[in-house]
Structure formats: C-alpha cells, structure tokens
Computed example of a mutant assay.
Amino acid sequence: MLNSVSMDSIYQSTYDAKKDREIKKELDKEAFLELLVTELQNQDPTQPMENKDLVAQLSQLSSTEQITNMSQAIQEMVNSQMSLNKLQAASLIGKTVVVNDNTIDLQSGVAEGLNYGLDNGSQVYLEIYDSKGQVVYTEDLGVQEAGLHSYVWSGRNNDGTMMPDGEYLYGIYTVENGQMVANTGVKSGTVEAVKFLDNELYLLINGEMYPYSVVNEIST
C-alpha cells in the first residue's frame, strides 16, 4: 500500500517522465512499464506491493504488449495486401472487360447503343428515364431468346419529340412467373488505367471510371 507522500511522488515522477512524450489515447507498453517501475520505486517499504498485485500488473503489461504486437502484425498484413492488390490491378490495363451499366448517352440527337443479357427466353420491355427518374420512353421488345442483345434508341420520347442531349438511364424488364424482373445492362471496353480511391479499385474504361465491383467479365 502507498502512503500519501509516496503517491505525490509517483504522480510528480510520472508527470516529469511523460511531459515530453506524445499524448496518446491508449497506454502503450513502454508507458505502462514506466508507470509500474515508478510505482515500485516509490512504494512504502513497510507495506510493499504484494506478489499477487505485482503478478496482476505484469499480466496487464504482457496483455498490452501482445495487443500492440498483434496490431502491428495486422497493419503489416494490410499494407502487404494493398501492395499486392495494386500489382494485380495494374495487370488489368489493356484487357477487355464487361461492366454493369444502365446508362445511355444522347449526343447531337444520336443515342449510343445499349446492350443487355437474358438468362432465359422471355417477353422483354424497355423503359428509358431522364435525369429526374421520369419515364420518357417505353417499348415492348417482344419475346427474345436467352443471350446478349442490343438496341438503339431513337432519342425520342413516347410523343415522338426529340429529347435533349444528356445522360439517360434505361431498364430492361422480363416476365418471370407472372412478375416483372429487372435485368442489368452491360457495356464493354478496354481498361485504360486503374486507380485506388479510398482503398477501392476503379477502372478507366471508354473514358469513364467504374468501380471494380461492377465488372462481370474480363478477357484478354
């Protein structure tokens, strides 16, 4: 047990030893050991720390050191994996990929072609939306077989009026068990560059950035 004079000495010694150290939110193993040594040096000789108390504090020191070492090991693994990911990502440059994309660009009254795949033959319906999510065009594309299909929009709405240039969204819907099911549109292109943003991989394809998560096919 420590007397009041010894406690004052401990606080003063600890403050003097740590005032030049960087302030940390958690007690690291060096600070923990320093505090323990200071406590032992200033304990009351007539009432020294009992063995069980010393063992308990040493156990805390061991746990603190293990946690620190584990954190360092995990960080090293993360850094190593990130380096490996970047090397693997660089190998994608020049390869042809297919990405999920339901956008259409309309420029000078000409819309780019859209592509979509069907897992099964079905009745197919098309809807095109403006930037506000409003439906501007619908069409019944009839019954189509499974596989990859293409379509070119005229750029006109349901009234036959030419729509302004810009980016539009489209939806491909099939009928399955009496329910309308949305299908994903796709685009293909060559990977021109790769980039990591917030630890997520992005690919530059046809001048547009796509997250790697939307890639569904890669070929040479």
Rank of each mutant, 00 (worst) to 15 (best):
L148D: 12
T161K: 11
T220V: 13
M180H: 08
V55W: 06
L61Y: 15
G166S: 06
D159N: 15
A111I: 00
V186P: 00
V186G: 00
A89M: 06
A146W: 07
I218K: 04
K29H: 10
S108V: 05
K86S: 08
K52R: 13
V191W: 02
E65W: 07
V191G: 02
G117V: 04
L203H: 05
K187M: 05
G109D: 04
M162P: 15
N115A: 04
L35S: 12
S80L: 10
Y129M: 04
Y151V: 04
G185D: 01
T138E: 11
Y125H: 05
V181A: 07
Q72W: 03
D105C: 08
S62M: 13
N120S: 13
S91W: 02
G94M: 01
V110C: 02
I128V: 14
E127Y: 11
E30T: 11
I67H: 11
M82D: 13
I104W: 01
Y125T: 06
I10C: 08
D28I: 03
Q43W: 07
L201A: 03
S122K: 05
A182K: 09
D140Y: 13
T14W: 10
D20W: 08
K29I: 15
S213R: 08
G155C: 01
L33N: 12
G113M: 08
G109P: 05
M163A: 06
I218R: 04
A31I: 06
E192P: 07
Q179V: 07
E167S: 12
K25V: 14
F196N: 02
Q81Y: 08
K187Y: 01
G147Y: 03
V136H: 02
L201S: 02
I93F: 05
Y125S: 11
V215G: 00
G185Y: 00
T14Y: 10
Y137W: 06
V215C: 02
T103R: 09
L197K: 14
Y168C: 08
G185T: 02
Y170E: 01
V152Y: 05
I23E: 11
S59M: 14
G189R: 03
L141H: 06
D105G: 09
M162E: 13
I205V: 12
M1V: 12
M7H: 11
E167V: 12
N158V: 03
P211N: 09
N69A: 09
A17Y: 05
G185P: 00
K95I: 07
A90L: 13
T220C: 10
A193W: 08
D101S: 06
M180L: 14
S6A: 15
G155K: 00
P164C: 08
V175G: 04
Q134A: 15
R21N: 15
Q144G: 02
G94L: 03
S83K: 09
L204V: 04
M163E: 09
G117D: 07
D101K: 00
I10Y: 05
N79K: 10
T68D: 15
A56Y: 11
S13P: 05
A73Q: 10
